[in-house]
Design a protein around this nucleic acid. Structure first.
Length: 482
DNA sequence: CGGCTTTGACCAGCGC
DNA sequence: GCGCTGGTCAAAGCCG
């Protein structure tokens, strides 16, 4: 596994270095310097230079796609390795667990943390395995989960059951559910020797201050239902990803009952199809956050799960009141990144205890796996800078990078960042990528179901940003369940 | 005409 | 066992 990671990081390093080299000849700098220093240059030479520039830009694009490809291959290999490890571990412990679990785990199964293999398997499964398990990239799990090409409802799942591992594999977490039968119903069925449906899936919700009916996350969604939720006068809408047939990803959209300008979007599942960079950014980010929550790779490892029900992450990004919350007491384990500016969201009150992260968390732009060349990726777009002058002024690093990077390249880099997050999930990194997704992309028109796949920005935020000087206060909430 | 939204019905989980 | 709630289905209608 470490070898794989090393290979991957080396590849990323190389490609990024090449990229940076290519970008030394950016159109602007090149043209301006040449025209200033050699005003009398013949037109032929200018044309040649321009051709060379175009060639370099093309090369740049190819390298970017190569990087993407390497990243996917890496995740794919990693996922396969993890699968083999999981099967091995599962077979080794299945027998003894059956006796143990019957007596002690049925009650605790209702707690979400019991989804974790450590809890179910006992000391036989190490923390390392859990962390590795959480690092499976969602998009690359698709390659392994061919069965998930068809969306399987719980009902259908009952009828035509499939091998749990394959069926849940598009979600590394739900796979654990299936394997160990830790969901309440799953437990009973597992005890009976029957397969259990993937009732719980990873969820990532985004809380955003937006007046638009939907946030634009780069994917195409189709509404399939709407319900009035208890305790909220606003209806909850259910959407399904329609970018590919059978994509299991769903999302719920609901306005906050306390502040109807806040839009709460909850994502569930992982895409089983290639995503545009913008959507991939969100998908990778959310899945990384989700998996980290469920993998327990955060600071609450040492305590019992119940004591880690909530963790608040004071953000280091130049936002005020950015807060990420993990909730274990909710029906689903939840990661909440609250960027609304509301100090205490109602989600935080769901939990019984909190853990404040030390203020020494890595700041953005953050180094990836200790590779300094990954620093300074620039998580600020021009839009962000203009709308947040006050904040950006406190963070010259961010503001200086905005406008220097071209949209496509930046999207690709952010995607790389989020993919890297998936391989070694630290929540702060996931948080950072999520925020970069929200604030970093050029804003699209307030498009309801976001047919445009290239823009991860939150539709409708723009008017809010312009109208309220204290912003940006988009709020991003990640909740993950499996 | 195809894709999408709407909306009532249905189902499963859960608490009492 | 019953009722409540969340989530999903699917028919009907709308829209470009």
């Amino acid at each position: 596994m470490e070898e794989l990671e090393h290979i991957f990081l080396t590849s990323v390093h190389t490609i990024l270095a090449l990229q940076n080299g290519s970008n030394l000849l950016s159109p602007c700098s090149d043209r301006s310097s040449e025209s200033e220093t050699k005003p009398s240059m013949p037109k032929m030479r200018l044309l040649e230079a321009q051709l060379e520039l175009e060639r370099l830009q093309e090369e740049n694009r190819e390298l970017t796609s190569k990087l993407d490809h390497v990243s996917r291959n890496y995740s794919n290999l990693k996922a396969q390795l993890l699968l083999a490890m999981q099967k091995q571990a599962h077979q080794a412990h299945l027998g003894e667990q059956e006796v143990k679990n019957k007596s002690s785990l049925i009650k605790s199964a209702q707690h979400f943390m019991d989804l974790r293999p450590m809890d179910v398997n006992g000391p036989g499964v190490t923390d390392e395995k859990m962390t590795l398990d959480a690092s499976i990239s969602p998009t690359d799990m698709d390659a392994l989960s061919k069965e998930s090409n068809h969306y399987i409802t719980p009902r259908k799942y009952h009828q035509a059951h499939v091998d749990d591992e394959d069926d849940n594999i598009d979600d590394g977490v739900s796979q654990r559910w299936g394997l160990h039968g830790s969901s309440p119903s799953g437990f009973k069925k597992a005890m009976d020797g029957q397969p259990e449906p993937p009732f719980r899936k990873a969820r990532v919700s985004v809380r955003a201050r937006s007046e638009a009916p939907l946030i634009s996350d780069g994917c195409q969604w189709r509404k399939y239902g709407q319900k009035m939720a208890k305790g909220n006068p606003c209806p909850r809408a259910y959407y399904r990803c329609t970018m590919a047939s059978g994509c299991p990803v769903r999302k719920q959209v609901q306005r906050c009952s306390e502040d109807r300008s806040i839009l709460i979007t909850t994502y569930e599942g992982n895409h089983n199809h290639p995503l545009p960079p913008a959507a991939a950014t969100m998908a990778n980010t959310t899945s990384a956050a989700a998996k980290m929550l469920l993998s327990g790779s955060t600071t609450c490892k040492e305590g019992p799960p119940s004591y880690c029900s909530t963790m608040q992450f004071p953000s280091s990004i130049p936002f005020t009141s950015t807060m990420a919350t993990l909730s274990a007491t909710a029906p689903f384990p939840t990661i909440t990144l609250d960027l609304t500016g509301t100090p205490k969201s109602h989600l935080q009150t769901l939990t019984s205890s909190t853990q404040q992260f030390p203020p020494s968390l890595p700041t953005l732009p953050f180094p990836l796996h200790g590779h300094p060349q990954h620093q300074g990726l620039g998580f600020g777009y021009a839009k962000y800078s203009t709308s947040t002058d006050d904040n950006s002024s406190h963070h010259p690093k961010l503001s200086s990078t905005s406008g220097m990077l071209r949209g496509q390249r930046q999207a690709s880099l952010i995607e790389t960042v989020t993919a890297a997050i998936a391989s070694d999930p630290k929540f702060t990194a996931a948080l950072a990528a999520a925020v970069s997704t929200v604030i970093g992309a050029p804003q699209s028109g307030a498009g309801g179901s976001n047919g445009g796949n290239e823009n991860p920005s939150i539709a409708g935020i723009k008017p809010v940003l312009q109208g309220t000087p204290q912003l940006p206060h988009p709020c991003t909430t990640f909740s993950t369940n499996s």
